[in-house]
Design a protein around this nucleic acid. Structure first.
Lengths: 151, 151
DNA sequence: ACAATGTCGACTGAATTAGTCGTGAATACG
DNA sequence: CGTATTCACGACTAATTCAGTCGACATTGT
């Protein structure tokens, strides 16, 4: 599995924050409840996202977390790389060092796949993820077992 | 990292066997030496490849391993899936079960990436990997630090 | 002052990775 | 037959990562 729960949960959190953009800070506990993330684990992910500059946080009563930049300007690739480190499917693909000998014989295939992946991920913003979710919600209104993220 | 050394080493071994197609069994020790794989670990990988039907093995003096089918008919996708299990970048992508609720909000992006990946991997045969390697060898003849796989 | 909230680091149990090792089985060869 | 060669298989292990939990502390609104 390329993505661990870190990337998954972290993106969920970003979507949640984007959905409440402009509405003041959103609390960890809310995000955790709506997106089904263990709250104390979410803590770490929010810290990573903050250090990476995607969100900022406010302490004290009424505090919480907000996007540091508009959701349209934050792409999935950057968020995931901040959370997961490199997304390279194969170790040797990130060694841009010259003189690296291609020994495993399949790098060229994976390089194409990796390029396609990065292209797609950098073409999708957090705002688009929110929009996608909104459409999906309308489609399945009332029929979905989980996931009314507006509660 | 999507691929562990299993997939990497296993494909290297398949390439090595394909390169010696028609030349009788190739011994574990040879493969290990040429492809820089710990021999006792390679043992496990060959077992997996054999159980998956890609190779067959011959015991006794002069024994070794051979492709069970022509290299042209073996695609990278199948080999890798045999070694690594599912290559799905995200857990939820392999649950073809109906009723699976999309909760993480990014499945649609990853589904596209996964489809592209599987398409490319199933379009490349082990024979093509060998051919690619032969071309690369000619290009870098004498200049390469490692990797004359013909020794 | 105090309650609500975020911040940070230490700690943990389970799983996975990347192997090693030893024993045993098959077989070619003399 | 005996022996050397080669694969077959399972037990074991050390290191790392994953997926959290927990507790102490800092900040701030009322």
């Amino acid at each position: 599995m390329l993505l661990s729960t870190k990337g998954d949960y972290g993106v969920r959190a970003m979507i949640d924050l984007a959905k409440h953009e402009g509405g003041g800070p959103v609390q960890r506990a809310e995000i955790a409840r709506r997106r089904q993330i263990p709250e104390s684990y979410l803590d770490h992910l929010l810290a990573q996202l903050r250090r990476a500059g995607f969100i900022r946080s406010v302490r004290g009563p009424g505090g919480g977390h907000l996007l540091a930049r508009p959701a349209e300007e934050i792409c999935l690739l950057h968020v995931l790389e901040a959370l997961e480190g490199s997304l390279a499917p194969l170790g040797c693909l990130d060694n841009t060092e010259a003189g690296q000998e291609a020994i495993c014989g399949q790098e060229w295939v994976w390089q194409e796949i990796y390029d396609n992946m990065r292209g797609k991920l950098s073409g999708v913003s957090v705002a688009e993820l929110v929009e996608h979710e909104r459409v999906h919600e309308r489609d399945t209104a009332g029929t979905t077992p989980l996931g009314n993220y507006n509660i």
